[in-house]
Amino acid sequence: MSRANFEKAKSILGTPAFEADGVLIYKMDCSDGMKMLSDELVDLTITSPPYNIGKEYEEISALDSYLSWCTNWLNEIYRLTKGDGSFWLNVGYFEVKDKGLAVPISYLLWDKSPFYMLQEIVWNYAAGVACKNRFSPRNEKLLWYVKNPKQYTFNLDAVRDPNVKYPNQKKNGKLRCNPLGKNPSDVWQIAKVTSGKNRSSVERTPHPAQFPIEMVERMMKSSSNEGDLILDPFMGSGSTAECALRNGRYVIGFELEDKYIGYAKDRITKYLTDQEESKKQTELPFAV
């Protein structure tokens, strides 16, 4: 069914800016693109929108305008999500004039759609700005929404943390811990995608705000199944697309900047090329 929905979306949206096996990326405003699509098309949405803090890909808007804009695409995501589907939203902080310096955007967006907010996850990382007059920020929020709180996909075993302190501890002769590992909890310690000489992450692209693949993978594996259709309205450097390819999902994304589409194209093409080369190596006959 997801493959059919993938093809259906392509027939509606037309020729993408970039296409690979199971990947469609459109140079299009996400609100415009999503409005073209039919209800309950996608299984899972994972995205991180502009934070309204003046990054190179955005212009700072008045607070009311920003919240109105967000409400628009949040409601479109809800409409497109299947009845048992989920939505993961990553947001950070911004300044609210005369109210606060580092106000979590999640405080202002969490109830701006009909979604049921199942849980807030804290993404904790080590790298970041060092502050002198306040504590250095080292976290962002992940809001996990579902359309139906009584029926949604959750694959805990797919994302268990194998780093267990006492993996062989028993009670009444039975292991106390699941052999696959522990529940990762609602605080995820995942490294940011860093830049700079001698400290740049392997997956780093020139994009100024890049999702780490490890974090996307935990959201994707826990909240969808192989063959599902994933949506990312703010595709950026293509982390969601690459992760979907790695994990046997279809993916549709929207992005306005040509250079970001180029970054996504480069990393997806590299991944597919590496996979093809690896396949060839495994198929080589043994020397006799």
Rank of each mutant, 00 (worst) to 15 (best):
I53N: 10
Q169S: 05
Q189S: 13
C30L: 06
A62D: 12
R3N: 08
S48K: 08
Y145R: 07
S31Y: 05
P208F: 15
S106T: 06
S224K: 05
K97E: 15
N163Y: 10
L142W: 04
T15E: 12
G85A: 12
W188S: 04
D29S: 14
V129H: 07
F6W: 11
L284V: 10
S239K: 06
N163A: 11
A244H: 07
E7M: 08
S65P: 00
D29R: 14
V202S: 13
R267P: 04
K35A: 07
G236S: 08
R138A: 05
S200Q: 15
E40G: 12
K165V: 08
W73P: 02
K192Y: 04
S11N: 09
T45K: 02
N247H: 14
M219K: 08
W123D: 03
Y125M: 02
F211E: 02
G33A: 11
E56P: 04
S86G: 03
E203R: 12
T47S: 14
T240V: 15
M117Q: 03
D84T: 15
W73M: 02
K170S: 05
S68E: 12
N148A: 09
W73G: 01
V202I: 14
Q275H: 00
N163E: 10
S185Y: 14
D258I: 09
L143K: 03
K112S: 05
G238I: 02
G100R: 05
N172V: 00
P184Q: 12
E59W: 06
M235H: 06
M28C: 11
L231P: 11
K99N: 00
G14K: 10
D32V: 14
S113R: 09
L229H: 04
G181D: 04
V129L: 13
K27A: 06
Y166G: 00
E242R: 13
M36I: 11
E255I: 01
D258C: 04
K82H: 13
R199S: 09
K171T: 01
V187C: 07
C131T: 00
I25A: 12
A209N: 11
V103R: 08
V164E: 03
P104A: 01
K280A: 11
L229A: 04
Y125K: 01
C131H: 04
R246D: 00
Y263H: 13
Q275E: 05
I261E: 00
G85I: 10
S200M: 15
R249V: 02
V164Q: 09
E140I: 04
R199H: 10
I60G: 00
K165P: 00
A241V: 06
G92T: 09
K279H: 02
S2P: 05
Y260Q: 03
L284R: 14
I12Y: 13
K174P: 03
S224Q: 07
E40A: 14
P208V: 14
S223H: 15
L80S: 10
S48W: 11
R218L: 12
C177R: 13
I190S: 05
S61W: 15
Q275M: 07
K82F: 13
A20F: 06
F115A: 01
K171F: 08
T81M: 11
D228Q: 09
D39H: 15
V122E: 10
T71E: 15
A102K: 09
V42F: 15
S38C: 03
N198E: 09
D98P: 01
W73D: 01
N163V: 08
G227P: 10
S200W: 02
N133W: 04
E257N: 08
L41C: 02
L284A: 09
D258K: 13
